[in-house]
Amino acid sequence: MLDISHISKTFNPGTVNEKKAITDLSLHLAPGDFATIIGSNGAGKSTLFNAICGDFLTDSGSIVVNSQDVTFMPSYKRSKHIGRLFQDPMRGSAPGMTIEENLVLAAGHGGWFSHMSAKDKMAFRDQLAQLDMGLEDRMKQPVGLLSGGQRQALTLLMATMNPPWLLLLDEHTAALDPATAEKVLDITKSVVAEHSITTLMVTHNMSQALELGNRTLMMDNGNIVLDVSGEERAHMTVNDLLERFKQGSGKALDNDRMLLS
């Protein structure tokens, strides 16, 4: 589903601020794969996501999503098939517009001059009800009035209402309180399972990285240093993971927000 081959990205090349963010990274995800990503600060996790989404053009290499070469495709076109959630719950929705107005834009069907139909509203109502947050009764309220967790759940709904080929989750529960984070994570799991969406998820929770999905990737210094799945992953503990990281990168894992629980 996702084929990244030998991509590199250097920011500010030739200056004192030169930063090799991604160095010759390759990654293949099979359809339905759910991979978690962990890594040190500045390992290039978010940069990898930005590259996949097309926020910048990589210096070399190619990115193919579902046999479609997107290397030079602008980000707004890629977003048709790539859904993304950020850590900041405010980034995914327009605060000054109502819940239903946000949803109708995300739904993306109908011509430029089409109006929201009663049928659309019914469908949105059902989908919102599934979030179990009472949002179905607040469809005419501006999104800016929602809490962070509600906004993140709404963003998740918006990103998956037309099931994308690829879903990128960049620590999307990190800014939420534990109870809400768990709820958003549960919704994530059920949505991903329902449509078997190929998913990449950055997390700083080590045990989550092993529990969720079917693959765990570790990043360091702009590359993937560890890729475990299957039987090996099933028997792995957090300590094993740390040990393997040390072997792979030659240093201890350093992330100031890493949770070892």
Binding site: P74, S75, Y76, K77, S79, K80, G83, R84, R91, G92, S93, A94, P95, G96, M97, E101, N102, V104, L105, A106, G108, G110, G111, W112, F113, S114, H115, M116, M158, A159
Partner: peptide, 25 residues
């Protein structure tokens, strides 16, 4: 209140969201 009009309003509100709705800001 058309889709285009909503997209214009969203552009002033959150261009990131417009892009992720596959609309070119």
């Amino acid at each position: 209140n058309t889709r285009l009009g909503l997209a214009i309003r969203a552009t002033g509100n959150n261009p990131d969201m417009v892009r992720s709705s596959s609309i070119n800001p």
